[in-house]
């Protein structure tokens, strides 16, 4: 009876439907062939079903990414909803893969699906985690670099939610700048 009752409870709908993408670097294939849409979800319950089913980010091999984007937005600069935007970038040391990476990524996911950025949540496109030997990265993507108020609000809330020290500084980079330079050289448009 308990099982039946549980099944009858309505799931909790999210504001947006989200898509999980997985990227695995296979050098012999073009970049886009290495990027796969895993699935989409639009309830709290389905999010957790997915989260507990897939590998933790820290267990992925180097060169892999997870991306979570609003359904219909592809996790690439070229998408029309991304191309004028940018990203709040969190760069991690090698040691942090084992201490902080999974916690920071889960917190990022909860910010997205919970619409943590108030009226500016509509500016959010998605988030990406890159697993790399030289240091992992997490980025929160927004759609319009010029929306300074929204971008900085999102950055301040995001930094607080990640529990970063007030002395730590995170930067926001325009995709248009990242696309033309290596990310380590891209200048920050905003910092919080």
């Amino acid at each position: 009876d308990v099982v039946i009752a549980t099944e009858n409870v309505e799931k909790h709908p999210l504001q947006s439907r989200w898509a999980l993408w997985f990227f695995k670097n296979v050098r012999s294939q073009p970049w886009q062939c290495n990027l796969r849409l895993v699935t989409t979800f639009n309830t709290v319950e389905d999010f957790w079903a997915l989260y507990t089913h897939v590998q933790l980010a820290s267990k992925l091999s180097s060169g892999c990414d997870y991306s979570i984007f609003k359904d219909g937005i592809e996790p690439m600069w070229e998408d029309s909803r991304n191309k004028r935007g940018g990203r709040w970038l969190i760069t991690l040391s090698k040691q942090q893969r084992h201490s902080d990476l999974d916690t920071l990524w889960l917190e990022t996911l909860l910010c997205l699906i919970g619409e943590a950025f108030d009226e500016h949540s509509e500016e959010v496109c998605g988030a990406v985690i890159n697993i790399r030997a030289k240091g992992d990265k997490i980025a929160l993507w927004t759609r319009e670099t010029e929306n300074r108020e929204a971008v900085t609000h999102i950055g301040r809330v995001y930094k607080e939610r990640l529990g970063l020290s007030s002395k730590a500084v995170i930067g926001y980079q325009a995709h248009a700048d990242t696309a033309t330079k290596s990310s380590s050289l891209t200048k920050n448009k905003f910092v919080v």
């Binding site: 549980t6 909790h12 709290v44 319950e45 999010f47 957790w48 919970g114 619409e115 943590a116 108030d118």
Partner: peptide, 20 residues
């Protein structure tokens, strides 16, 4: 209105049997 969920609410669903 917008469906906003705070982190504690969302985390409360993490280990629910229906999610496994």
């Amino acid at each position: 209105g917008k469906r906003q969920y705070d982190r504690d609410f969302l985390l409360g669903f993490q280990f629910m049997p229906a999610c496994v």
